[in-house]
């Protein structure tokens, strides 16, 4: 199981505590979280399933490579963080 955590700024809008989830790719782990929390998808992903422009996902401390299909491989005990980019004003 991989762990999935979220920026505190996202928790201002919806409940999303750190979870242990199964999945072989970033997409599968995120979809597992969305299954029990459908609103989460629209906050993190575009309608076409790609990662929102100003969001980041870190896998073991590194930004994921594939922001479109979220196909980066995930292994047991990996740590995923859904963060927001440093943008705004």
């Amino acid at each position: 199981m991989a762990s999935l955590s979220f920026t505190a700024n996202l928790q201002r809008h919806l409940r999303c505590e750190t979870q242990e989830l199964a999945g072989a790719t970033v997409r599968e782990v995120l979809e597992a979280a969305c299954a029990s929390n459908p609103r989460l998808r629209g906050y993190v992903l575009e309608d076409d399933g790609s990662l929102r422009k100003h969001m980041n996902i870190f896998l073991n401390g590194q930004q994921i490579e594939d922001r479109t299909n979220l196909s980066d491989s995930v292994n047991e005990a990996d740590e995923l963080y859904v963060m927001q980019a440093l943008s705004g004003g």
């Binding site: 809008h13 629209g42 906050y43 575009e46 076409d48 929102r52 100003h54 969001m55 705004g88």
Partner: peptide, 27 residues
């Protein structure tokens, strides 16, 4: 229109005292 989290729609049934998120149109 959250800069990071995208557009959202909220609804109030008490003249703006409280708001709740409702559905967002999606393609």
């Amino acid at each position: 229109e959250h800069g990071h989290f995208g557009p959202k729609l909220h609804r109030s049934e008490d003249f703006g005292e409280s708001w709740a998120e409702v559905g967002t149109p999606s393609y």
